[in-house]
Write a protein that binds this DNA or RNA. Structure first.
Lengths: 244, 244
DNA sequence: CGCCCTTTTGAAGAAAATCAAGGGCAGTGG
DNA sequence: CCACTGCCCTTGATTTTCTTCAAAAGGGCG
């Protein structure tokens, strides 16, 4: 595997010049495998490297004093983590592999240099960060209602997967357990199960064996009050578009 | 008022050279007054300017279809908003004045140039953004328990106010209504009131007339499981410090 | 086949929302 | 100076949502 996901992702964020593409291709990336449930980055780390998720799914999470945890974000192929390296900050949370993953390690200062040299790449990195932040805000916005929360999360994951070519035609692999979905929404696995069953019973989705099938995209969008524009904030057309 | 808050804030994030200070001082800032409850930046805007809150409190928020809203962040003097300008993205949320505010307008490309020229300032802006993101994650982490959530929020606000010289000796002006606190935590104003009364009854805090008094810092820190290190992620000493 | 992890189901209990109404305080205007 | 008004805080009773606890049923894999 070469820089595939990285280029796809960057190109989805900004218009890249040929020079940008060459620079990205030339970026030395060291791939590492991380097994499911293993840490990719511990809380408190001060990474020297920026990490790029090349394949697999991962999550940002924080563990509470009582042992419970909250997932504060899902990472899909093409997503960065450890951007903290570019400003020498410590990780306030941990990153863990949800499936077997391949993680690319990019030297932090090489990455920072690249951002300094190419304004498009710098912009792409900022945009990626702003989108991540927007996602966090949506999670807060919709975490007060579990039904809406689950629906919105599934929309988010579907669209994000589609951007990197991992979803199409209302089908998407979502390798999460119901417990992990619950940890993301701040609800129990039991309650997550009931919400998913409700969505299934209403004929809106099917979610089993880690495969999501959206049976009624309009209803799911409505249930989750989902508007994908926060995932593409530079498209000024503020049309409330469906999942497609 | 000159660049006071800006310098204080930046200096709290990185070590500034004299040149950085001069550059920041030379930055043209246009001040505007915004009255309480008035928008500072609407959702969907594609700002050309980076805004700096010079005095007063503001909030990021999003309104739901049913008219309810969620506050997704509080802005204190020295905080930036509209960083979206530096990568030409649209605002996914709105910013509103919670008190009468003075807002400084900084040309987006001038600001971007400054970041490009000074690595310290670039680092400071990144750090400020990472802290904001860390705050969002803590809100998610602690929003499942209203008691812990209120306690944690008050700790956050106290520490952030202290950083810019607006809090000391366990006293801090917190110009929020209970409804606004509730909107930040995703709970109703009624329930917020009961939680605050509980904290008051336990002798931990006093919060009335927009004045917060921390009567038992250790108990408040405990109640909110608060660890200020996420607000200063470059200090590698991971000691769980009290509010001090 | 048997084991572990995940999903599913049921019943009881806790947390927070909702609905409704009263009370305090500050600013306004007579 | 005092009454009025609007906003915010406070309190109580009821209902909804979600948790907790417990246990059973699938499904994949050694």
């Amino acid at each position: 595997m070469e820089q595939g996901v990285l280029l796809t992702k960057m190109a989805s964020l900004v218009a890249l010049t040929d020079e940008d593409r060459r620079a990205l291709d030339a970026l030395p990336i060291i791939d590492t495998k991380v097994a499911r449930r293993r840490p990719i980055m511990p809380q408190g780390a001060q990474p020297d490297y920026v990490y790029l998720l090349r394949s697999g799914w991962a999550a940002r999470h924080e563990v509470r004093a009582d042992g419970s945890r909250r997932i504060t974000g899902f990472l899909l192929p093409g997503d960065f983590c450890g951007i903290h390296a570019i400003c020498h900050a410590a990780m306030d949370h941990a990153i863990i592999a949800l499936t077997d993953c391949v993680v690319g390690k990019i030297d932090g200062s090489a990455f920072a240099d690249l951002c300094h040299q190419s304004s498009a790449i710098n912009q792409a990195v900022w945009r990626a960060k702003l989108i991540e932040e927007a996602v966090l805000r949506k999670w807060l916005l919709f975490s007060t209602d579990s039904y809406q929360g689950v629906a919105h999360l599934l929309c988010e994951l579907y669209v994000r997967a589609a951007v990197v070519g991992l979803a199409a035609d209302g089908q998407c692999r979502v390798p999460l357990t119901q417990e992990e979905i619950g940890d993301a929404l701040g609800i129990t696995a039991v309650h997550t199960n009931r919400v998913i069953q409700r969505l299934r019973g209403e004929g809106i989705i099917d979610l089993s064996h880690h495969e999501l099938t959206i049976r009624d995209a309009a209803a799911l969008t409505r249930a989750g009050a989902f508007d994908r524009s926060y995932l593409e904030p530079w498209l000024s057309e503020n049309a409330i578009s469906l999942l497609g």
